Simulated assay, not measured.
Amino acid sequence: MPENNNLTLVMGASANPSKYAYLAAYRLHERDKPFILLSIKPGELLGQKFLNLADKPAIEHVHTVTLYIGAIRLAEWQDYILSLKPKRIIFNPGTENMALADAANALGVETVFGCTLVMLGTGQY
């Protein structure tokens, strides 16, 4: 796993090219930004196997968690996400979960309600 402070976790990764999580991983790859793919479904993308989200793998040096899991389902992953000690959580459209955002903010984690693809495309990432 990459060991630096710029690591992005793509939660809800997909190998389906029509999914935004796929596009986000692809654009991170194009911009040489290190990332790890997490999903409850097995898969592989860009030569990287998905880590099983259900295993709640220990991952260090997390800077950003970008979410592609529906807002309602995030409750079951909240403690895990916060245990990773990210510096930032990006709530992509459809993932807006105020309980997670409030808990993250209370820990000093930056929360962004935006789109990873737009952020990457405009240099705001």
Rank of each mutant, 00 (worst) to 15 (best):
E76D: 15
H61K: 15
G47W: 08
T64C: 14
N52Q: 11
L53N: 03
F50K: 02
L67K: 02
K56I: 02
Q48D: 00
A75T: 12
A58N: 11
G47I: 05
R73H: 14
I72L: 09
G47P: 07
Q48V: 09
I72S: 11
P57E: 03
P57W: 05
Q48E: 10
H61G: 10
I69A: 02
T64G: 06
W77R: 00
H61Y: 13
Q48F: 06
Q48T: 05
G47H: 10
H63Q: 14
W77K: 02
I59E: 01
A75S: 13
A54D: 14
H61E: 12
D55S: 12
A58F: 07
L74C: 11
P57A: 07
A58V: 14
G70W: 07
G70A: 11
A71P: 04
Y68R: 03
L51P: 04
E60Y: 13
K56A: 07
A54H: 09
E60I: 01
G70F: 10
R73N: 15
I69T: 10
L67C: 10
G70N: 13
L74M: 12
Q48A: 03
I72M: 11
Q48W: 02
R73Q: 15
W77H: 15
D55F: 05
K56G: 00
D55K: 11
N52I: 00
E60A: 15
I69L: 08
V62H: 06
R73L: 14
K56C: 06
H61V: 00
V65A: 09
G70M: 08
I59V: 14
G70V: 07
G47R: 03
Y68P: 00
P57C: 07
N52E: 11
Y68N: 06
L51Y: 13
T66V: 09
Y68L: 01
Q78P: 09
L74P: 08
R73I: 09
L51V: 07
Y68H: 13
Y68G: 04
K56P: 04
Y68D: 04
T64L: 04
Q78M: 15
T64Q: 07
A54L: 12
Q48C: 00
P57D: 02
A71H: 14
A71W: 06
A54R: 13
K56F: 10
K56R: 15
A54M: 09
T66R: 01
E76I: 10
H63F: 12
A58W: 02
L53G: 03
A58L: 12
N52R: 11
Q78D: 13
Q78Y: 07
I69M: 05
N52G: 03
